[in-house]
């Protein structure tokens, strides 16, 4: 059964989509029913970070093993992760409009961090396009990817904890402590995280297969 994770991801995502809208949630000021977005908005970011992590591992392997396969995989993982940042931004923006009253704010370090991460990965793609030689491209872009991943994590994991944020769980607190998630919500939130992470991995595998077929056709 090598397809188990694909089936599991579909089941988990369907379950969270349906039960996320039906199950009871705590009544909180301002948040009200929008708290359900935590099932969609947050897991998508987890999926993106997971894919960026996969991209980092593949880039490190490119450097140590000097193989082109790993470079292709690193690129595909970054592409899938980048793809996930778009729905992450959209759901976040809509949520912000209904709770903070604005589509985008520069007051929040997490939002700035996301904008910077997107710029970093756009730079990574442009760097790849500007080098023609395959082996050279693999090494250069792997170096940038490793450096950029560390900087991105400094930005979105460490800096927000030092300043006040509109996001819950920041300003010195560990994440989630202020979400006021009760056991009902956890029943949906954790499956949603697992479901989206598995789904991103599935997309990554499909991208890899397409790339390797293309490479074979070109040879």
């Amino acid at each position: 059964m090598k397809h188990w994770y694909k089936i599991l991801s579909v089941i988990l995502i369907l379950y969270t989509l349906v039960w996320g809208l039906l199950n009871p949630v705590p009544r909180l000021d301002i948040l009200n029913e929008t708290i359900r977005n935590v099932y969609y908005h947050v897991p998508i970011w987890f999926a993106m970070l997971f894919m960026m992590g996969v991209s980092l591992v593949q880039s490190i392997q490119t450097l140590t093993k000097n193989k082109l396969d790993n470079d292709t995989k690193a690129y595909n993982a970054a592409l899938v992760g980048f793809f996930f940042s778009l729905p992450g931004l959209t759901t976040g923006s809509i949520w912000a409009k209904f709770t903070w009253g604005t589509w985008w704010t520069f007051q929040d370090p997490k939002l700035n961090g996301v904008a910077i991460s997107i710029l970093i990965y756009l730079a990574y793609f442009i760097l790849r396009f500007s080098v023609d030689d395959e082996l050279k491209r693999a090494r250069i872009s792997a170096v940038y990817n490793v450096f950029a991943f560390v900087m991105m994590n400094v930005f979105i994991m460490i800096l927000p904890r030092l300043t006040d944020s509109l996001h819950p769980g920041n300003g010195g607190n560990p994440a989630f402590s202020k979400y006021d998630m009760d056991s009902n919500m956890r029943m949906v939130f954790y499956p949603a995280v697992i479901g989206w992470v598995l789904f991103s991995y599935w997309l990554f595998e499909i991208k890899n297969r397409i790339s390797f077929i293309k490479i074979k056709l070109n040879d």
Binding site: I116, A123, I126, L127, S130, I140, V154, F155
Partner: peptide, 23 residues
């Protein structure tokens, strides 16, 4: 060093540096 390997145009230097300099 990266920019000089990547065809070495000026724009690539700023594109690569600005986001990683932000923190």
């Amino acid at each position: 060093a990266i920019a000089s390997k990547a065809s070495g145009n000026f724009a690539i230097m700023s594109i690569l540096s600005f986001p990683v300099l932000m923190p």
